[in-house]
Nucleic acid binder design. Structure first.
Length: 432
RNA sequence: UCCCCGGUAGCUCAGUCGGUAGAGCAGGUGGCUGUUAACCACUUUGUCGGCGGUUCGAGUCCGUCCCGGGGAGCCA
């Protein structure tokens, strides 16, 4: 038996006989010449079977093959200009492994409800495969970026005893009867502790928000890449966030061009993602917005229409800093130059995906932090361990978090983040 | 939680003025020696989301509940 091969390697195997293992994507027949499209997870290739050039049994097996049946095919690789991928297989053997019965997803249009109910099968479609490969590329590039800069990956807990920020709704789970454990909405506080141990750290994992949000930017379970750096101040993390986004976009452009093409994602907007990114203070953003006719006053948080307007004003991500402290979390450090504001940053992606990064310089003074806790009506006792970080060698430090699905959606040009994660969890959707 | 839209065949949808259910695709049968979501012929398939109401008669009108989608707020 000829060696097993993968479809993505066929260009290097022209003229050789190979065996492929995969699933039937589609088939067509013209009587004595029959075509089958095989996918194997690495690509799609058409096999051509001609009667009398293949055993009768194998030729007849074509009739029984249904969409998504698994099978093994053998044939000689041939360059074929007419084929979409540029290569075809002249088949000498076709062996069904398992015949699929009534595969529900046809190579046709389907509604989103139907597709999400069949997400476990929808993943097999070329478009979803392309998205998942780009997500993998981005995840890999995230780890590579921080590892190269000698950051330490610190895995923060999923179960947490209390809210990190208090405001957002948390998922509560029963913890041995008399206690509640909450699913983490951020690893930040733990990462701050780790930064005091290791200096430069990051975490990358799932986070959970029980917000009843029904928009194209929200999931109840999503992945967040977070970093925390001892001795870093706001300008340092602006530069780091800028370098990170540029690295991720560049890696996708370099390694996943075929997938971007399949998604029909225009490349020019991605190639424009180069430093420096525009930086705007919140106050400047408000001035821009009011000049453009938006009815916002200084002190209002920016809503979706305002964020969309600002992001569409630039061809690359825009960094908005120095929000009013009332809009932001208790741990953010007020700006000494204007204590009404905090040393924070939101990075808005172009093309309407919204905020992809949120970060800040953290309050490192114990007394100031206690005051901020009171202002936010947060209990002190559960956060004593966090306050310890300000009691034992407190230093300036800063960090940010990046929402993976929003970044994937932006880079892939997706309309909704639900396609950017293998099994999306939404307010009204927990299956499959 | 609020606002808007939708639910008809396995899928995507049409269904006029209230008059007894349709198309394309998928599935099935047959044909075709280069097909690209192949094509051609024939063909199977219905709790019109549930419940109640109006009516001689309801997919169609009214009420209510369920489910889904889009958006807001909040956030990444």
């Amino acid at each position: 038996m000829p060696p097993f091969a993968y479809i993505e390697d066929l260009p290097t195997l022209v003229g050789q006989e190979v065996t492929l293992r995969g699933w039937l994507y589609n088939k067509r027949s013209s009587g004595k010449v029959r075509f089958l499209l095989l996918r194997d997870g690495t690509g799609l290739v058409q096999g051509v079977m001609v009667k009398n050039k293949i055993p009768d049994e194998d030729f007849a097996a074509f009739d029984r093959l249904t969409q998504e049946s698994s099978l093994l095919i053998r044939g000689v690789v041939r360059a074929e200009p007419r084929a979409p991928g540029g290569y075809e297989l002249d088949l000498s053997a076709v062996a069904p492994l398992h015949l699929a019965q009534d595969y529900p997803i046809a190579p046709k249009e389907h509604g989103i409800d139907f597709l999400l109910n069949h997400r476990h099968l929808w993943l097999r479609s070329p478009r979803q495969q392309a998205i998942l490969r780009i997500r993998d590329e981005i995840s890999h590039a995230c780890r590579e970026f921080f590892h190269q800069r000698r950051f330490v990956l610190v895995d923060t807990p999923i179960f947490t005893p209390t809210a990190c920020e208090g405001t957002t709704t948390l998922f509560a789970t029963d913890y041995f009867g008399d206690r509640k454990a909450y699913l983490t909405q951020s690893g930040q506080l733990y990462l701050e502790a780790a930064a005091m141990a290791l200096g430069r750290v990051y975490c990358f994992g799932p986070t959970f928000r029980a917000e009843k949000s029904k928009t194209r930017r929200h999931l109840t379970e999503f992945w967040m890449l977070e970093t925390e750096i001892a001795f870093a101040e706001l300008p340092d993390i602006l530069a780091l966030a800028e370098a990170l986004i540029c690295h991720l976009v560049a890696q996708v452009l370099a390694n996943r061009r075929a997938e971007l093409d399949l998604l029909e994602r225009p490349l020019a907007p991605l190639m424009a993602i180069q430093p420096p990114f525009p930086r705007l203070t919140y106050t400047e953003a408000i001035q821009r917005l009011t000049a453009a006719g938006h009815e916002v006053a200084w002190g209002d948080d920016l809503g979706a229409p305002e964020e969309t307007f600002l992001s569409q004003s630039f061809d690359r991500p825009v960094m908005i800093t120095h929000y009013p402290k009332e809009c932001k979390a208790f741990y953010m450090k007020p700006d000494p130059a204007d204590p009404r504001t905090v040393l924070c940053v939101d990075v808005l992606a172009p093309e309407g995906v919204g905020e992809i990064i949120g970060g800040s310089q953290r309050e490192d003074d114990l007394t100031a932090l206690l005051t901020r806790l009171q202002e936010h009506n947060l209990p002190q006792e559960p956060l004593e361990w966090y306050l310890d970080l300000r009691r034992y060698g407190s230093v300036p430090h800063s960090g940010f978090g990046l929402g993976l699905e929003r970044l994937v959606a932006w880079i892939c040009g997706l309309h909704h983040v639900r396609e950017a994660i293998p099994f999306p969890r939404l307010m009204d959707r927990l299956n499959p």
